[in-house]
Each structure stands twice: as C-alpha cells, then as structure tokens.
Design a protein around this nucleic acid. Structure first.
Lengths: 138, 138
DNA sequence: TTGCGTGCAAAGGTTTTGCATGGCA
DNA sequence: TGCCATGCAAAACCTTTGCACGCAA
C-alpha cells in the first residue's frame, strides 16, 4: 500500500517540533544532531539534511549561510510575521547573530524604496559588524 | 636580505589584475584558477586562496557567500575609501550593484550602535533585494 | 645564503549520495 | 508484500594547512 504524500515520519515530526520550539532562534545541523543525541533518540545527519531541505522548500524553515565557516543555520519561520521585519546582525568576531527590531529598519526600507526604487529583501540581508562584547574586547 | 612588506609577487599581481579587469563582476576561486590555467600560467588554488585572503583584509576584494552553492565569490572593489560611506544594494535578479548614499545609512548606523552597541561593517554588508527595473518586470 | 612565496598533497569540515535495512500501510 | 524513509559510511565538495622547493634580494 502506498503512503499518502503528506505522510509525516517520527523523525520529520521531531525535527520540525524541535525547530518550532526555539522561538525563531537559528541552529546548525550539528546542534540539531546533538539535541537528539542527548535525548538518546539520535537521528542521522543525512536524515536531518533531507528533512531540512524539504522543510525549506515547504517554506517552514529558512536557511542562512553567514559565511563559509561552520555550516549553515536553520530557522523555523511558519506564521512568523516578525521574521519578515527584522534584519540579522552577525558579529564577525564571535559569530553571534542578533536580531534588529523592525522599527529601526522600516525607515531605511522606506527611504531606499522611495529614493532608489529598490526593495530590500530583509530575509536575505545580513548586516555584518562587531557586537558589544567584541567591541569591548578589541 | 629581507623583502619589503609591500612586496608584490607575480602571482599576486596577476590575481589582482585579473579581478580588476572584471568590472566589478564576481568570480569563484574555480573560475580564477581556470582563467590562469587557460593561459598556461596555472596558479595553485592554495596560492589563490592565500592572496584573496590578503586582498580581502586589505579591502581591495570583497568576499560573498551566496546560499552555500559552489563556493564563495570574490569581487574587486576599486576605491575603498568611498566604500566606507556606502552600502551596496545588490539586485537578486539581475545582479546589478547600486550604491546607497551615506546620509541614508548614517541614521541606521547610529541607531544600531546606540540601541544594540553593534558597529556595522559597511564594507562587508550587502543589502539584497530587487532593483527598479526587475521590480517592474516582475 | 636566507626568508618567504609557491605548489602539491593531505587534512579539515560540511553536505550529499549509495545502499542495505526496517517500518508502516 | 511493497514503498520509501532511515542510517551508516563513503563520496563529493570547498577551503585550509603542512612541508619541501625555488626564487628573489
């Protein structure tokens, strides 16, 4: 008998459920694997990658590549209106990723759209720089 | 005898010269290697990476990582003094790169620094989106 | 001669793929 | 029984590193 196309496996369910529990935080594949490992319910990395790929295609998960080091990050995004309206701030020193609330960027978005007819893709754009603690240590 | 610190090797010169001949187009390391290969003047990939690293640090070349596919891209940046006061707007559809005047970003820079103690690296940051003509065609 | 850039090859890390297995209908 | 997801391991991939060689001063 054939399985229905919307069939959801235990692993797929677990991965989506874990991601959605993170309140929009980003995680790497490594972190996901460690999480299930620590619960004695290890999931193979290949399976994780395969599910993340599907979830990204389905629009439930967003993939970020900040720079070439240390792998991509994934973030749960379903019905996340807020995600559409914040920039990511990535510290070049320690790698921390911060979120910039929408009120600070709406002005920029508007003036760029009006002044240059350029519509910023907030999802894709990452602002690079230095975070507070790395600035203090420099 | 010690070489001066600003010593430029034949390979370094060749790589910079090639990049600057591309009119701001971005290339992968693979493309760079193929270019020299085709001229029977092959340069080892390790050497290419080492030079790109130096050139990026020196601000003459910018490194981009698009969605994890097929390696990073590098782009020659002509006069970096001016880049300090511009954001780059890159159209995701046609690839055009526009400049955003400093007055529009100084406000953003200031509020991010004040609000989050995060200092934006204007050189590295690229705002992705859609340019006027691609918006019109969509 | 001496330092340093070079190139090859190996190592490193991330992601994908091949294939046998097992679970669910 | 028959798909098809799984998981392991190997492969593929990009990038970095180790090391011996060679060029330029």
């Amino acid at each position: 008998m054939k399985r229905p196309s919307n069939y959801i496996t235990r692993q797929g369910e677990a991965i989506l459920s874990y991601l959605s529990s993170l309140n929009g935080e980003h995680v790497t594949v490594e972190r996901i694997a460690e999480f299930f490992e620590s619960r004695n319910a290890g999931i193979g990395v290949a399976t994780i990658y395969r599910h993340l790929d599907k979830l990204e295609t389905a629009g439930k998960v967003r993939k970020y590549v900040f720079d070439s080091v240390s792998g991509a990050c994934y973030q749960y995004v379903e019905d996340c209106e807020r995600c559409l309206s914040h920039f990511h701030l990535k510290c070049e020193d320690c790698g921390t990723v911060l979120h910039l609330p929408s009120d600070m960027i709406s002005e920029l978005e508007r003036s760029v759209l009006n002044g240059h007819s350029f519509k910023i893709n907030v999802i894709k754009t990452v602002l690079y720089g230095k975070c507070a603690s790395c600035l203090a240590n420099a």
